[in-house]
Amino acid sequence: MDNTKEPTSATPATEWPLWEIFVRSRAGLDHKHCGSLHAADPKMAIQLARDVYTRRQEGSSIWVVRSDQIVASDPGDKGMYFDPMEDKVYRHPTFYQLPDAVDHM
């Protein structure tokens, strides 16, 4: 990138921080991640999230979290981390064969 040309186009230091947006679509449901946006502070992040992500009543509650505060599992460890559950079929109700008469259990 050529950063020498336009001083008006800000360097990363003056860019508003990034926030992750979580929206509860209606009472009784979980907040669900729906995207991200830039905002100067938490209050502005919530206001902008309303305008960007709930223009058609998609939400009844919003959470915002600074993106740099999110801690995530390493995608490189995906296999090591999650595959061990693959052979534990006995953790699922379908593993157990019951007589028809009681199978709705």
Binding site: M1, D2, N3, K5, E6, S9, A10, T11, P12, T14, E15, L18, S36, H38
Partner: peptide, 18 residues
């Protein structure tokens, strides 16, 4: 932005005609 370029870099590319 998830691909590792900042919003400002993208806007600058637009504004300079690149």
């Amino acid at each position: 932005e998830t691909l590792g370029t900042s919003r400002d870099q993208m806007l600058q590319a637009l504004h300079t005609g690149k």
